[in-house]
Amino acid sequence: MTADTWTDGAGRGVWKQRAKQARAVVDVELRKMLGGKRALAVCLLAALPVFVVFLLAVNVHALTLMDARETFGTIYSVVVLGATVFFGCALVFTHLFRGEVLRRSLHFYLLAPLRREVLTLAKYAAGLLAVCTLFGGVTILVHPMFIVTATQGDWVVLEMFRYLGITLLGCTAYGAVFLLFGTLFRNPILPVAVLLGWEMLNFLLPAGIRMASVSYHLKSLLPVPGPVEQAMGVPAELPSPGVAIMSLLILSAVAVVLACLRVRRMEIRYTED
């Protein structure tokens, strides 16, 4: 036995060891993310809401708190969720496995005495840690930045945490879906584009189909109606926050489990890629 503290069977030592390996994978992944060119693109996406809010904040003054909240709700839906979280997660999570295949470095992981499920979960956790820290931080920054400037003093602290929760939930769900895309498709750009269209236009779809969408559930958690809902009136069939959160968590879990199954059957055939 070469690696320390392994024990046979399903004893605690095995799980402790798997946790240690997962931490090592997270550590490696975070280093790679920080060192890669994609980090710059993800940081630019994270800076986008700050830039937009800054531009609006210097031009919009003396709004009522209600108007400021509605305006921020629109900025949040379109810029933070629609651009930063969606595209940021696409950049990070589709690349977790696909990037390694393109770089021909996936075999380093696959040759380690590491269950593929642990590898997949650890990579997902690393991606989640990165985007949640970055985009969660942006959410915490831009909410007071806009509300305080636009209302010249008012601030709704609890609402900020609600937006933070939506951001984290959005990262969790989009991250899981994009992780799966990265294991399913040689070129994930097309499915990402299809998902973007689906997410943007799903308000046009019948209620039953509309449920199969991340944005549909995220919208129901917004403190104020999103821009589409403001224009069209809030659809009565938006799920309750509890149902929306559970749905998104179940969707994320299913996507991660499917990704685990895909990675479990993955073979190294770089020449075909």
Binding site: T2, K20, Q21, A24, R31, K32, G36, R103, F108, A112
Partner: peptide, 20 residues
């Protein structure tokens, strides 16, 4: 090919850590 942005020593240590 190697994981991006690593030194030789970091590569080995990282892989050994992944080994457990």
């Amino acid at each position: 090919a190697f994981p991006v942005g690593m030194t030789g020593r970091r590569l080995l240590i990282s892989l050994l850590r992944v080994h457990g």
